[in-house]
Amino acid sequence: MPSKVDSEASAAERVDPGISRGDVDGFQLGGRIWGSRLIVGTGGFRSLEAMERALVASGAEIVTVALRRVDPLARGSALEVIDGLGLFALPNTAGCYTARDAVRTAQLAREAFETDWIKLEVIGDDRTLFPDAVELLDAAQQLIDEGFTVLPYTNDDPILARRLQDAGCAAVMPLGSPIGSGMGIRNPYNIQIAGESAPGLVAAPTIEDARE
């Protein structure tokens, strides 16, 4: 399926295929140049107003959002806030435990957000929220075959990161520490290796996820 995101991009410029990473002042990701390397999540805010203030203060251009069953009683819309700020809403597959669920959620997200970008999350349990490596790689391969731009939340495992890059992911997003733990980067050596061992670093940058 052709990408729809190019036609509506407001937060990034398209990248000339002839431009290398060193030629531009910005962060190249998924064929586009971004002014900020920070990707901000939208969970945990007490109100949409607080979320909006944080997004503005962060300077981020990419903001992750989730999909859930419609709640008729819900007030306000996170997406309206994000759209109003001119930011890029990056849908995720939060809450998925299997490749099958993640692929279906990504397909729903493509329809809902009119983008083929997806932050791929396939977790193994709800205690650690660690990724399930087997299901994650399976889902990534399926989604890449369907034309998605895939950014997987991964373990701090350099080999898995390489497998994801080899599969064609636009980036890998290894966790710094368990989500919500606030422990910073628990295994900096692994994160370093994941970055260094990526021969396709320009095409598949390493983005640290879940540091706080």
Binding site: G41, T42, G43, G44, F45, L48, M51, T64, V65, A66, L67, R68, R69, V70, A74, S77, A78, L79, A89, P91, N92, A94, G95, L108, A112, F113, K119, E121
Partner: peptide, 9 residues
Amino acid sequence: EVVRAVQGG
């Protein structure tokens, strides 16, 4: 299933 964008992740 009818889903919509929400805060999360």
